[in-house]
Design a protein around this nucleic acid. Structure first.
Lengths: 213, 213
DNA sequence: CAACGATGTAAACACTGCTTATATAATTCA
DNA sequence: TGAATTATATAAGCAGTGTTTACATCGTTG
């Protein structure tokens, strides 16, 4: 049983290089964008030689993938709070709230959004964590829609797979457009702007039977 | 009045370096992805020194922006054929056809789609051509929706700006998901797969008054 | 305390975008 | 036509990148 590692700097060994590397990498991304990350710069900020990061990450891609995993974890955490905030008897309202949260989170942390959804900077398929958490989100949506159908809130004749697909595409597209500056300026800590809410509202409203609420 | 430039190779001057650079850049993108483009490689393929491209493009970004302009031109060309293919008395059908064409084009030429929509590899704002053509597409959508409203095809209470936004976000998201491999494999020369068509259909159907068609 | 594995370094290789000074060809003008 | 100018290419080099290799140092454990 190894003793607890003390964080004594100034020693030859860093102590917690991995965590620090992830932190400074996010720092770089937030300062200069994902595409300007270099492992040399990360190493420098961690106070370590250019080759040191390669002891812990096989490649730059591996480093960025680890950052993505951490970001995805935070998204899941933000999601966990949704259920307590919406009426569980209105699954479609929960679904809408889910979409709003995603948009708010994506625009408040475009850095994390970008890296999670990148298939060129990270190796999504190689990460069990990313794949399973992504599948969990989809599963959650299917469950909400299924419950809505059982309660008679959903109009008939819908293929749930297509609905999920449309919802995801819509929200993803909205997030991208927001980040790329297609919306009037507003502070990201506020709820998503009217336009995005309306687009979501439009979609949810259209799959809801008119009698339900 | 300069004489017509003959394409005699083997001379010191290349003759039509600009066009050839655009061509080989697209070649590289299609072979190894947008992010692996290097102007040195492009220069090599054009049979020219590494510094030569900088006589015609101030930076790598400028080169890629020129590629994007060319790609956007092709998209507009593909769009031009839509009107002849759909019933002008059914503007919403035309809009849907527009969406289908965009999806088909995007997935058949992911390279072009990617570079047109990138705000990191190219300088979108600096290109008059890109901005005006992008605005033209939006304008076309607004016109179609306005005509649909005048004909009574559109349900009431819709803000056209939001509808356009939703439509664009949806189509963009679908294209991205398709390119990122969220759909079962199919050959890009075929029409978009069932899932994408259904998502589009769902959206268009939901903004159409039930009496129309 | 000797051995060892984990973790760091230094140095180098093959790339990259881009700049500067220079050479050559094509075009314009006297 | 011949000279001057302009357009277009080159060579050489700077600073920065991802990654590998050989070696140094430390913490832990037999």
């Amino acid at each position: 049983m190894p003793k607890t590692k003390a964080l004594h700097r100034k020693s030859y060994h860093h102590g917690n290089l991995v965590e620090v590397l992830l932190a400074v990498t996010i720092e770089i991304i937030e300062e200069r964008g994902v595409e300007h990350v270099s492992v040399r710069e990360a190493a420098k900020r961690a106070g370590v030689s250019p080759a040191a990061p390669f002891q812990h990450f096989r490649s730059k891609t591996a480093l960025l993938t680890a950052v993505a995993e951490q970001a995805m974890g935070r998204l899941m955490h933000a999601y966990a709070a949704v259920k307590s905030n919406a009426d569980p008897d209105q699954p479609l309202a929960v679904l809408e709230e889910l979409g709003r949260r995603y948009l708010q989170w994506a625009v408040a942390h475009p850095t994390h959004f970008e890296i999670i959804n990148s298939r060129t900077l990270i190796d999504f398929e190689a990460s069990d964590s990313l794949r399973t958490q992504n599948a969990a989100i989809r599963q959650r949506m299917v469950e909400l829609l299924t419950e809505a159908r059982e309660r008679g809130h959903l109009i008939e004749g819908l293929d749930l797979d297509y609905v999920v697909l449309t919802a995801r595409a819509l929200v993803y597209g909205l997030a991208r457009m927001a980040i790329d500056g297609h919306f009037p300026r507003w502070h990201p800590s506020e709820p998503p702007p009217q336009a995005m809410r309306q687009a979501l509202r439009l979609f949810i409203g259209q799959i809801t039977v008119s009698s339900a609420k």
